[in-house]
């Protein structure tokens, strides 16, 4: 498996408002095409919310996996 080059890791563990996905949206909007953002979230809802948003907005989900008691989700900005 090729190693993913992470542009920035966003630690949104413990975030309810604005919440992990909103933290990711912020980063994607400010980022450059090709950037990869890794989101750390302790909210199980992120495993569903984030891929759904990524799919709807046309970006790319690199991975979405559990790491102990939180989720690691990486997203590539494609446009």
């Amino acid at each position: 498996m090729s190693e993913v080059n992470i542009t920035k890791t966003i630690d949104a563990r413990g975030s309810y408002c604005p919440g992990p996905l909103m933290e990711l949206v912020k980063a994607i909007k400010r980022g450059q095409i090709g950037d990869v953002y890794e989101l750390l979230s302790s909210d199980n809802g992120s495993a569903k919310d984030v891929p759904e948003w990524v799919n709807k907005m046309g970006h790319e989900l690199v991975y979405c996996r559990e790491d102990g008691d939180f989720w690691r989700i990486a997203v590539k900005k494609t446009k």
Binding site: M22, V25, D49, E52, W53, K56
Partner: peptide, 10 residues
């Protein structure tokens, strides 16, 4: 709203 529901708090 930017995400899949109308507020970040479910």
């Amino acid at each position: 709203y930017p995400i899949g529901r109308v507020h970040s708090l479910e």
